[in-house]
């Protein structure tokens, strides 16, 4: 049986791109024309879900699901995330409200975050800003009483996306072991 992983985060964070970067199959997307250019300037947006697959060396298969990032589609988030091993939260840190988005998505997927089954990918961070962004993430995690792994990444780069997946799987396995003790 395939292991399900979800990609979450706001519109334009790179969820569709990240899935496309690592999927073994042509990714399935549900893109529609973006009419709300105040939210993001991109031409299309996901309206239901993205789907991709990744085969692992041990023979297991990961099913990669992406949620639609716009909040009006929050009704579908529990449907898409049902049965997921964990989630990858992607954020576009060039957006002024990225820290607010971080808190919002942690809150929306709190059960995954609480169980250590969430990893954060920070996209579009300039070299000079990395320290500041790290500080903000660490403060947010402290306030939320969470310890989440975070990585600076580019969703177009398969190596970066694979690193997030590896961190997620290791974290989930650790949590599983700790719960068994």
């Amino acid at each position: 049986m395939a292991i399900k992983v979800i990609f979450v985060g706001p519109m334009g964070a790179g969820k569709t791109t990240a899935i496309a970067a690592i999927s073994d199959i042509p990714p399935v997307a549900t893109e529609a024309r973006n009419h709300d250019k105040t939210m993001h300037v991109k031409a299309t947006t996901t309206v239901a879900m993205d789907y991709g697959e990744l085969s692992l060396d041990d023979g297991n298969k990961l099913s990669l699901y992406g949620i639609p990032g716009q909040r009006q589609f929050s009704f579908i988030w529990p449907i898409v995330s049902k049965g997921a091993l964990g989630g990858i939260l992607l954020l576009d840190c060039s957006m002024s409200d990225w820290a607010e988005q971080f808190k919002f998505y942690i809150d929306s997927f709190r059960s995954l975050a609480n169980s250590g089954a969430m990893v954060v990918g920070l996209n579009r961070v300039e070299e000079d800003d990395k320290e500041t962004v790290s500080g903000v993430i660490q403060d947010c995690c402290e306030n939320l009483e969470l310890a989440l792994p975070y990585f600076f990444m580019d969703p177009r780069d398969p190596q970066d996306v694979n690193l997030l997946l590896e961190a997620l799987v290791i974290n989930a396995e650790l949590d599983h072991i700790l719960q068994g003790e």
Binding site: V28, A29, T30, E31, A32, V47, A48, F75, I76
Partner: peptide, 21 residues
């Protein structure tokens, strides 16, 4: 209305994708 609008868009998007697949 707001909720059903989002659902209608998702449904329409999925319809297109299912048809294509």
């Amino acid at each position: 209305e707001a909720k059903v609008s989002a659902m209608a868009a998702s449904f329409a998007g999925l319809s297109l994708t299912i048809a294509d697949c």
